[in-house]
Amino acid sequence: MQLTEKHKQYWKKNSRLTAWLLVIWFVATFVIGWYARELQSITILGFPFPFYIDAQGALLVYVILVGYYAYRMDQLDREFDVHEDDN
């Protein structure tokens, strides 16, 4: 089947969303981890900041990222009329 302009736009939006979420994933995991020693003096809820991020914060970010992706893609599917049959 020939892809329409609308289809191409859907894929572009999907790719952009994916890329942005991956950037957040990367920062939460690797950028904060890399500077962990420098961030050690900040305290949050009694935890040193990097320890909190790697033991809890990042995990919560991951759950939210995946949840948001599912929600947003569902919207995009409908907006661009590529959603599966409702049943």
């Binding site: 979420l21 990042a58 995990l59 995946v66 599912a70």
Partner: peptide, 16 residues
């Protein structure tokens, strides 16, 4: 904590 991060963060890749 490398194991905690690694064994959860991978699911972001699975999802996306």
């Amino acid at each position: 904590l490398a194991f905690v991060l690694g064994w959860t963060g991978g699911f972001v890749l699975v999802a996306l």
